[in-house]
């Protein structure tokens, strides 16, 4: 593949090919969601995994071919990795409290109550009911 930063070279065709690939990937992420919706199938796992796998591939294509980050000075990439590391520290530190509602020596009764009431409302067909605190 030619260097997209070569001086005065026209790379329009290359960019259009990447755009077409991005649109095809969007369709790939939509198909399982549409099938699940139309046939009332409970394949949430497949739908979510496909959608996020496709999202990462799309993001990679945009970063590599539109932003040209892979041929930028390396410290820019390290700068972004540092920011992502900050995010991982944040999520790692907070997630046990937010994602779990009980542990060995603690329980979050308020959160458990909200989840239980929400699940009951969902089973009873109460979509869209406002949250009660």
């Amino acid at each position: 593949m030619s260097d997209p930063h070569a001086p005065h070279a026209d790379h329009s065709k290359h960019y259009i090919k990447i755009w077409i690939a991005l649109l095809v990937l969007l369709m790939v992420s939509l198909v399982p969601a549409i099938i699940a919706q139309q046939l009332h199938l409970n394949i949430t796992g497949i739908v979510v995994v496909t959608a996020f796998a496709v999202a990462f591939i799309k993001a990679y294509l945009v970063i590599k071919h539109f932003m040209h980050l892979t041929i930028e000075k390396k410290y820019v990439g390290f700068l972004f990795l540092t920011m992502l590391a900050f995010m991982l520290v944040f999520v790692g530190g907070v997630s046990p409290d937010v994602m779990k509602h009980e542990g060995q020596r603690w329980t979050n009764d308020a959160a458990k109550k909200v989840v239980d009431e929400g699940m009951k409302a969902e089973k009873a067909g109460g979509h869209g009911e406002p949250e009660k605190h």
Binding site: T44, V91, V94, S95, V98, M99, K100, H101, A111, V114, V115, E117, G118, M119, A121, E122, G126, H127, G128
Partner: peptide, 12 residues
Amino acid sequence: MHRIGHPEWASQ
């Protein structure tokens, strides 16, 4: 994180 901790959000 909240979405994983609150499966009932699916209805929203």
